[in-house]
Design a protein around this nucleic acid. Structure first.
Length: 120
DNA sequence: TGCATGACTCGAA
DNA sequence: GTTCGAGCCATGC
């Protein structure tokens, strides 16, 4: 394991980098069309930050007006708990997303980020 | 400044 | 199928 975590970005200008990271992540999230879903890890990679899945979650929590329900855990599993999990499932089903048991049918509904994902 | 935390991920057992 | 451990990183206190 230990994915492609090799991108050792310098610590300098970390604040600027953090802002850029949030913008890229938000952009990636907004790219997910209605009826499609993606995962935290996929969004992070699509935004250009492999391994930053937790930051995707942070952006979703703090972000406003984002289609948060379209972001799931690995394998298409809902990682939320309680009300949020129920609401997320209802919202996705309303958009036409198909569930297989407790997971989303990723074969049908996974949105794949292309290279253009972070081309702006 | 430093440490703990979190809507994570993935391979191995 | 579940559990565990290790790794990444921004954020809050």
């Amino acid at each position: 394991m230990r994915r492609e975590r090799g991108s050792v970005r310098t610590k300098s200008a970390s604040q600027d980098r953090a802002t850029d990271m949030r913008m890229q992540i938000e952009r990636a999230i907004r790219m997910i069309p209605r009826g499609k879903v993606s995962t935290y890890g996929a969004v992070a990679r699509g935004a250009g930050f492999p391994g930053a899945a937790r930051q995707v979650a942070a952006v979703l929590r703090r972000g406003f007006g984002l289609p948060w329900q379209r972001v799931l855990g690995s394998g298409g599993e809902i990682k939320l708990t309680g009300d949020s999990a129920i609401e997320q499932r209802l919202r996705l089903e309303a958009e036409g997303v198909r569930f297989r048991g407790r997971k989303v049918d990723m074969k049908l509904c996974e949105f794949k980020f292309g290279r253009s994902a972070r081309q702006n």
